[in-house]
Write a protein that binds this DNA or RNA. Sequence first.
RNA 1: GGUCGGGUAGCUCAGCUGGAUAGAGCAACAGCCUUCUAAGCUGUGGGUCUUGGGUUCGAAUCCCAACCUGAUCACCA
Length: 592
Amino acid sequence: MNIQISVQKAIETLYAQSVDGSQVQLQKTKKEFKGHLTLVVFPFLKISKKNPEQTAQEIGEYLVKNESVIAEFNVIKGFLNLTISSSYWIDILENINADKNFGTISSTENSPLVMIEYSSPNTNKPLHLGHIRNNLLGYSLAEIMKANGYNVVKTNIVNDRGIHICKSMLAWQKLGNGATPESTGKKGDHLIGDYYVLFDKEYKKELNELQSKGLSKEDAETQSVWMAEAREMLREWEAGDEETVALWKKMNSWVYAGFDETYKRLGVDFDKIYYESETYLIGKEQVLEGLNKGVFYKQEDGSVWADLTSEGLDHKLLLRADGTSVYMTQDIGTAKLRFDDYPINKMIYVVGNEQNYHFQVLSLLLDKLGFEFGKGLTHFSYGMVELPEGKMKSREGTVVDADDLVMEMVSTAKEVSEALGKLDGYSEEEANNVSEIVGLGALKYFILKVDPRKNMTFNPQESIDFNGNTGPFIQYTYARIQSVLRKAAEQGIQLISLDKTLAISEKEENLIQNINAFSSVVKEAAESYSPSLIANYVYELVKEYNQFYHDFSILREENKAIRNMRLILSENTGKVIKTGFGLLGINVPERM
RNA sequence: GGUCGGGUAGCUCAGCUGGAUAGAGCAACAGCCUUCUAAGCUGUGGGUCUUGGGUUCGAAUCCCAACCUGAUCACCA
């Protein structure tokens, strides 16, 4: 079964020297050459003491003679192209066919536990396009880790405290006239977001008025009544003032209901949600403990700092002079709470790349505080999403709202499908269902196929174009496969077992090879935290399947054994597409 | 200025643990539907892989430098 080891053995036998497994590079043979696997023989020239062609020839001859799975070989320069026997491919296909969960490993109680933090919204604004990338990456990463046998806890940290929340509360209190999501018909998060914007508007208006009276910008800011009231509200909140806390709870509950709706539609979820309002005090405790242990130091004004100069970084503030927490303090507290709650082996934070420095520091601080997980934490960093029109800027009102975008994607999917007559004969409900799957598939695939580290441009129109490297194209291929299988079933075609003596075509062998590669792709995706790897693999597979599909008339083939083989090939391609897309959090339609 | 990313076709992106003539899609052009989903398939054109050095049998890939670009740099989260 393991060709890598066969090759290794061949070389050792031929040249009477042991070779390191990593030197045996077997790669997929390029399309233009005959064969399935290619061995690069350059690394072995030293021990063979012969030129590349001769060495390759020798190894090839040995393999064909001694390994039944190697049917033939050819040599081009220093490359030994090996052709694997058809019966081997049929065996492989049979194994894949028998394996219901092909490509995935299930976890046990003893499997390592990975905690993945993602989403991390503020409660004063609705989710936007950047959050979408975050949510999709986080969810997909969790699915990929699960598929590799890890236990996964998906977590969310909600930033529910601070001056920004008070701004929304204040504007609502003063200008809201008791508006609620019910009375306005607005989603809670949007309603609160509106008041946050309103605060900003009123505050700016006030500043302008003060400045027109001759005050400097700084003086105007200190004299602002709006800002003073917001600060006062934060003080009341921290002091536990009943009325303030009640208002805060009420408004937050609206926001959470709004978020839940968005999460549900995006298809993401969490096992455990943490709130900064519950963790910032724990962070403070941890910092004070660190101070006692002498890990941190106090400045004259009473503020607490960490000295990271020996690690090549700077000094970092952990508690302000007035004893209040900063962002870092909260993250320390949250980490402490999480590790108390779960036996975490690995912590992954899905957070934008603007926080690279923050996580570098967090890792060091946790380590200094004696948390063993500190050093090993992973910041899964991703770049910004831009639109073809340019960057999103909240000041210019060019932020793309997550809910609006999803709605637009789904309605575009519907329009396009209708125009193509694809929804003819569908009930309204079925049509909406397919549009939902396709619209979201377009969005998700387009975002996930790009390397997370890169800044990317999301082009809604291109994403929902049903040609090319898009989600809908892959979904369509899946639906077509299901159609083929349905037709076969209608015609009463029974799947018989595979005939191992069957001569199968090169195209079929290549397709099997590609399907078989799925399990190693899943593994690699987990090792390199890379949803995009899965996405690009699935696309390659789909393209290859399409070529195969167009070359053969699958159902009208006379030979039963061949027809059967092709149906099984289709079925397993479908299986891999569905599983692969599942790892990306994308649904596939049974028909479209 | 310091630190960390990114720079591949007109556009959007793969490829990056070194391997053969650098790949897709979009856009452009030319073909393919009496019959299983044409939202498809086939073909053509399009590249100094930012630049310059280095490492070696071999570099888009590794190292160094420069240039361009993004993020970040202590009391925002």
